[in-house]
Each structure stands twice: as structure tokens, then as C-alpha cells.
Design a protein around this nucleic acid. Structure first.
Lengths: 338, 338
DNA sequence: CTGAAAGCGCTTACAG
DNA sequence: CTGAAAGCGCTTACAG
């Protein structure tokens, strides 16, 4: 059923019905109520394409993922938060999958040219990220999950990765550890660099140099945590503590430690970064895990609000947030053994 | 830039340009090539809303998730497969998040009434699922991931959950196990029931009765696997083997077994269903895990093809597939301990 | 407070 | 092989 038919049934003009539905003030209260009631009863909804053509707004926010690796548990949590908040505003998410960085850029061009979305969410920023310039150029509004050094003012929400790892490393050095391994993300991403900076600063404060053999980079997966940890343990001068970039990496690291016949929280201390997965709690591991904690789902929710604000006209420069990260001590951290 | 401007630059009518872009045969080859080249150079793309209005097709497939629980690692893998295939056809995914079953039904009504999507993907079907009737009624094309007993012919892709668990249970009984626990999904879902049926059939074939105390239902999470397994182990007459519904449940079950001072593949045999997570391989666990294996990502890819076929006019009745599940023996299964 | 009509940017029968 | 024009279903200045 279209507007014409719907208005016809009510004996009103399309104009009045449209205004009643959009909550314009000029419509008599009784008329509006009648229209709203009928719309609910008959299930009338404006055609999205027509609405998009007429207003230039389509009620959709885009997000692009790289097909394979990107689509992990972190993404799920983030999308859960993002989606549930957007849904309250009747905004949907348009999800595009791409195979490469070039394809990602091409997708933003496509989305902008075809006016398929009102804004996009950017994620996993690199220190120097070409997407910022592209989107600015395309005049496609966006909110960045993370930060970048790229100039320009734009909306973003990041967590304090530097502070998180700085705190965690400080705890370990305070306990007496001097050989601390870091299971980090891929080089070049802002969060990876910030974490390494926090690590370096904490070690520097204790006069401990950085041993490149204790630095590992890779996906935040069980598999990669296992492999990197095995590598650390195979070294002559093995670490007495590890910082794991995610709960997944931590699971892998714990397996590697156990298979080497050692015990977490006794022979090796472990601190993990916890994005708060409802199905994988550090409280439930054995031993319970000391973590740096920040909910990625909450970040998704907040970013949804930020993008809605942006579309309402809030200046991007007013939509910048950096969230602190909490260090939660549990049983996986102890002074170095003997 | 819109069609009018773009056509103007080329000195052609909108009609001809539109036809060239859509690959209509009536356009002279030289003209078409000139148009295509210019479109690529100038980045011209038809406005999606206008295109949707004119053709009734919007190039978008919808999928609805329940905000909290639905959005787990299984979803990620599925979406990865779905998205990468749809992207090749320049089709995007519209993702809606809801809080309840009622809200999900309301969302399909909204999507249909506002013509926001060309089709939807349905997932997690219940044995008797009201969504089938609703979508049929709304004439919104759909492909179901899973099966249901509901009448009507519609497109679906499911895996043979019955056969998977039947095989797995047969292996355990053949090894001599008689007390076998089942960590299953929530009751009412088709896959849960099919799995339980396969389990019951295998036990029945050996004359073993079903002990309700060995049946557990819940989310496929580490947490739930841990809790259910703890419950099984706390029983007087504890099981000697367990079937875990997912790799996540298996991780939790393994932790529970270890914390009870027992060893998987020695004191307790374990078979997990593996949806093939790239970051969590049964080969890498200790011991390596015997699994029933079926890639949920591959299912997503295939469902993408099915929905594209459906929109091309393939009858839904021709789009029904049930995939076999492979049993892969590794080291977590052994005869019951003395 | 309400309505007739132009316009958003396409596609596609119809005419040539 | 190409084009002028109607039509898809809305919103919104403009007029009353």
C-alpha cells in the first residue's frame, strides 16, 4: 500500500498524511491521531526508496569489513552494541564485505555516489589512514572507532590503549618482573602502536630495555596466542610474564604455557586485555585472569549515538572521546617464581 | 553527479546512458564502451533510492539478529561467508537488531512494507516457526538457514545435525561408553531436536536408555559448557564421555574436566561439533579434539548464492539442501577408563 | 490547518 | 540504435 491509497482510505490528502506521519506541528491533533492509528492498523510504511529520493536521507549507516579476518568475535560484540542502539532510532546497518584495502576505498566511493547510506562507521585505523581523507573528500559523514594521527577534525571514540598497557606493565614490574613479553596486534594500527608505547614507557620507567624477542605481533586469535607464546618459551632467556592483547590470545598463551608444563600465575604471570565477551569471562578461567577491561559492546553503543548526533548536526569536533581502561587484578599475576 | 548531468557531459540522452549502464543489448557497442569508461572515470553511480523506486529492486538482503545472544562467533563466521559472496553481486546486507521475537516479526513487516530489502535470510529456526508463515504472507522472499517442520515450500540450507550426532554417539558407544552426556542448544530449535534425536537413536541401537541427567541445554558458550559439564561431573554416576554442541562449549567443558582433576581423552572422552572457526582449531587443543565438522562460513556463502538464485526466479522448491557432516577422529576419544 | 503540484533521479514502454 | 516523456512514491514550498 502506498501513500496515495492510504490517504485515500482516510479521505485525506497525501500532504496531510505525510505531515501527520512525520510529526509536523501544523496537523490538527485529532487528524494526526487518526492517521497514526490507521498506519499502525493497516501497516502502512513509507517506501524507503521514495523517502530517500525525496529527502536525501535513507536511514542507513554503513560499515565495511574485510571478508576473512575482520569478522571475529570482537566484531560481533561491537556490532551488537551498535545495532541495538541504532535500532531504537529506526536506523539500519548496511554491511559490506570486501577483500582488500583498495576494495574498501572503492566501496566508500560506491556508497557515497549511490547515496546508499547517510554515514559510515570506520574501524581499525592505521596511524596514517587514507580513509579519513577519502571520506572527507566524499563528504560522507563518519565516526571512527579508534584514533589516527591523520590531521582533520572528525568524530571518534577510542579507548586509552596506551594507559591500559602502561598500567598493566607497571603492575608486572612492581611485582618484580623484568622479562615481560607482549602479544600485540599487527604493526601499523594505531592501537598496536599505542600499546607498544605504553609498554615501552613502563619498562623505561624502571630502566628496563626492550628486547625485540619478547615482542610478538599477529591476529588476536587463540592460534596466534599459542604460537607466539610457544616462541617466547622456546627462548633461552624466557619471559616471566606476558601481556596478551585479547582474551583469545590469552587462551592460546595459556595452552602454550600448560603444554610447556608450567602454570599460569605461578611460573608465568599473565595479563590479558578483555573486551568483555559474555561467553568468555576471565573470572571463569583457571586461574582467574588479571585483565585490562573495556567493553567493546559499550563502545559500539556509544558510537551509534555519536553517529546519530553527527547526522543531527553536532559538529564532528565535539564528538571525540577517549575512554579510560580499568585494570582488574585477579589470580594470574604474582611475583616471578624463584 | 546524477544521470542528467552525466548524460549531458557525454552528449547522450539519459535513456541511452541508462541502457548502456544496465547492459541492454540495443546500445551500440562503441556507445556502451564510451559510457562505461566515463562512468568509471567520473565515478558515476545511479542513485540507489531512485533505482529502487523505478525498478522495485534495491540490491539489499536483510538479516535480523536478536541483540544480545545472537551475535556470537557463529554469526560472525556465517556473515563472513554470506557477505563475501553477496558482495560479488554488488548486493549489500541490511542488518537489523531486535530485542525480542515479537520485535523480529515487526521488523519483517517493516522491511516488507517499506521495501527496504529484496529478500531476507532467516536463521535459528524453531521446529514450529511462525516466521515462515509471516514472510510467505508478506511475499518477502527468504532463504532459511536450517530447517523447520512448518509446511510450505521455501528455500533452505541445513546441515545433517541428526546424522552428525548419530555418528558421534555411535563412535562413543562402539568404544564402550554407555554414559554419554549431551551439551545441546536450547530446546525447541530444530537443530537441537535433530541432535537429540540422533543421540537417542544411537543409544537406542545399543539398548541404552536416555538419562535426563546427562542432557544439558543452553547457549553454545564457554561459560555454559563449563557449567553444564560441572553439573555432569558432580553427579554420582558421572558420564565417561561428552558431546559438546560447539567448540565454545567444548572449551568450557574441557576446563571443567581439568578442574575436576581429570584428563580429556583419558578419563573423559569428548567430541565437539566444529563450525570451523579460523581462530580456534581442534587440531591445536590438547588433546586434539575429535569433531563433527561442517563449515558455517561455507553455508553462508552457499546461502548467498541461493538467495541470488531465488531473486533470479529459481523456484524456492529447487533450493533445498541438506549437507552431510564429517566425523573427524582425533585424540579426545578413547575407551572408557578402567 | 489542509491540499495541489513540482521535484527528487532513475527505468522503460512507446515512438521513430 | 536513440530519445522524449510517463511513472515509481514520497516530501515540501507555495497557496489558501
Amino acid at each position: 500500500m502506498n501513500l496515495k491509497e492510504f490517504a485515500g482510505r482516510l479521505g485525506l490528502s497525501q500532504t496531510t498524511v505525510s505531515r501527520a506521519l512525520s510529526g509536523y506541528p501544523e496537523v490538527k491533533k485529532a487528524t494526526r491521531e487518526r492517521v497514526l492509528k490507521a498506519a499502525a492498523e493497516l501497516g502502512y510504511r513509507p517506501n524507503t526508496s521514495a523517502l530517500g529520493l525525496a529527502t536525501g536521507r535513507v536511514g542507513t549507516i554503513g560499515i565495511v569489513f574485510r571478508g576473512g579476518g575482520d569478522f571475529g568475535p570482537h566484531t560481533s560484540e561491537f556490532m551488537g552494541g551498535l545495532g541495538s542502539r541504532l535500532q531504537q532510532a529506526d536506523v539500519d546497518i548496511l554491511l559490506s564485505t570486501v577483500d582488500s584495502r583498495e576494495a574498501e576505498l572503492a566501496t566508500y566511493r560506491r556508497l557515497a555516489a549511490s547515496k546508499r547510506v547517510d554515514a559510515v562507521i570506520l574501524h581499525s585505523p592505521a596511524v596514517d589512514d587514507p580513509r579519513i581523507a577519502l571520506l572527507t573528500d566524499l563528504r560522507l559523514p563518519f565516526v571512527l572507532h579508534g584514533r589516527t594521527e591523520t590531521a582533520g577534525n572528525f568524530a571518534f571514540l577510542d579507548i586509552d590503549n596506551y594507559g591500559a598497557i602502561r598500567q598493566a606493565t607497571d603492575l608486572l614490574t612492581a611485582l618484580g618482573h623484568r622479562r615481560i613479553a607482549l602479544v600485540n596486534g599487527h604493526r601499523g594500527y594505531t592501537f598496536t602502536e599505542h600499546r607498544q608505547d605504553g609498554y615501552a614507557a613502563a619498562l623505561g620507567a624502571r630502566g628496563i630495555g626492550i628486547d625485540p624477542n619478547l615482542l610478538g605481533n599477529g591476529d588476536f586469535t587463540d592460534e596466534m596466542g599459542f604460537r607466539l607464546m610457544q616462541g617466547f618459551l622456546a627462548q633461552e632467556n624466557r619471559p616471566t610474564a606476558v601481556l596478551a592483547g585479547s582474551m583469545m590470545s590469552a587462551l592460546g598463551a595459556m595452552r602454550a604455557i600448560r603444554s610447556a608444563g608450567m602454570t599460569v600465575g605461578e611460573h608465568i604471570s599473565l595479563i590479558a586485555h578483555d573486551d568483555v565477551f559474555p561467553y568468555l569471562s576471565p573470572e571463569n578461567l583457571i586461574p582467574t585472569l588479571t585483565t585490562t577491561r573495556s567493553s567493546i559492546r559499550a563502545a559500539g553503543t556509544r558510537i551509534a549515538e555519536m553517529v546519530l548526533d553527527l547526522l543531527q548536526g553536532t559538529p564532528a569536533a565535539d564528538l571525540n572521546e577517549v575512554w579510560p581502561v580499568e585494570l582488574v587484578m585477579r589470580n594470574s599475576t604474582a611475583p616471578p617464581a624463584g
